[in-house]
């Protein structure tokens, strides 16, 4: 047995030398809490993120598009499950996490509180929202908690198809009729700023960044990741003729980076605190479906118990 001080030293030495923290390892309570908060928020985001896209499954413009969208939504569900499992290794149950989502104690990404109004939004979500998520998740592959890191590696492998399918939709529409181009630009206008907000508040206002960086839970700051996404994405937009909805954006020759106008953080705060266009809809839908599934879970458990009982009878006879 080690003393509390030896344990803390061992933990800090692991973090320092890039040795991953594993579920049964000792860790500071605050590390565990932070990790659970981040993992559950990430998992909830994947699952809630299925809703805006699910809205278009029955209206996809072709069978090809429908099959792709279904596969993408199934991936998002899978990603949620990898992340819930990783969170469960820290001692929180799946029920607790779902309860916290339903009570509002646990958050999910504010981006999914915006509606997917047209088919072009499915393109914009894949290209911009998944694109932003990929930038964040690539960085998180190096996070200090082993199960989170492994989930991120798996998720990153799958995400790049999501971004490409979104960009393909946008490209197709930009090569189409005037109405289709207008629709694509409209989706770009509505999703650009919320996508930038996905990286979280600016570094000097981010409540958790400093400690999370020390523990290597986060490897790069919100602003660094946001800038990386901007620099990648602006060129992709221009390539297919889309305009970035930011008149004052300029390219800085010396830093080789795009400088954007200030982000409307008031909107971010409003959406986070429950006043986005779809907050109520997303959550109440999740609660409703979860309740509807209750009898299925009960029946499955009852069936399993009966099977075991029958097996026991078989042996005793």
């Amino acid at each position: 047995m080690k003393t509390p001080e030896e344990r803390l030293n061992h933990f800090n030495a692991c973090i320092e030398s890039e040795v991953k923290i594993e579920p049964k390892d000792w860790m500071p309570d605050e590390y565990r809490k932070t990790m659970i908060r981040q993992l559950s928020q990430h998992a909830h985001s994947e699952v809630i993120g299925m809703q805006p896209e699910g809205n278009w499954v029955l209206r996809a413009p072709s069978l090809r598009a429908k099959k792709i969208l279904l596969a993408k939504i199934q991936d998002e569900g899978g990603h949620g499950l990898y992340l819930y499992s990783a969170a469960e290794t820290l001692g929180i149950s799946r029920d607790e996490m779902i309860e916290q989502l339903h009570s509002g104690k646990a958050k999910y990404s504010s981006i999914f509180n915006y509606p997917a109004l047209t088919w072009a939004d499915i393109g914009a979500i894949g290209w911009l929202v998944d694109g932003a998520a990929i930038v964040n998740q690539i960085s998180l592959q190096r996070t200090s908690y082993g199960p989170y890191s492994r989930a991120m590696v798996r998720i990153c492998k799958e995400e790049s198809f999501h971004q490409r399918q979104g960009y393909e939709i946008m490209t197709t529409m930009m090569n189409g009729t005037a109405e289709q181009k207008e629709m694509a630009q409209d989706a770009m206008n509505r999703w650009w700023w919320p996508s930038l907000m996905m990286f979280g508040p600016p570094d000097n206002e981010s409540a958790h960044t400093k400690q999370s960086m020390q523990w290597k839970i986060k490897r790069e700051s919100n602003d660094v990741l946001r800038q990386r996404f901007i620099d990648k994405t602006v060129d992709q937009a221009h390539f297919i003729g889309l305009t970035v909805p930011d008149k004052n954006m300029k390219f800085n020759e010396s830093t080789q980076q795009y400088e954007i106008s200030p982000i409307d953080w008031e909107e971010f705060k409003q959406v986070i605190s429950g006043n986005g266009p779809c907050n109520h809809k997303r959550l109440s839908h999740h609660i409703k479906v979860h309740k509807q599934g209750k009898w299925v879970r009960e029946a499955a458990l009852a069936f399993s118990k009966n099977q075991q009982k029958n097996k026991a009878t078989l042996f005793t006879n």
Partner: peptide, 11 residues
């Protein structure tokens, strides 16, 4: 954890 509703055993 409630006994009447849960997410099934972990594997």
């Amino acid at each position: 954890m409630s006994t009447t509703d849960n997410q099934l055993p972990l594997w």
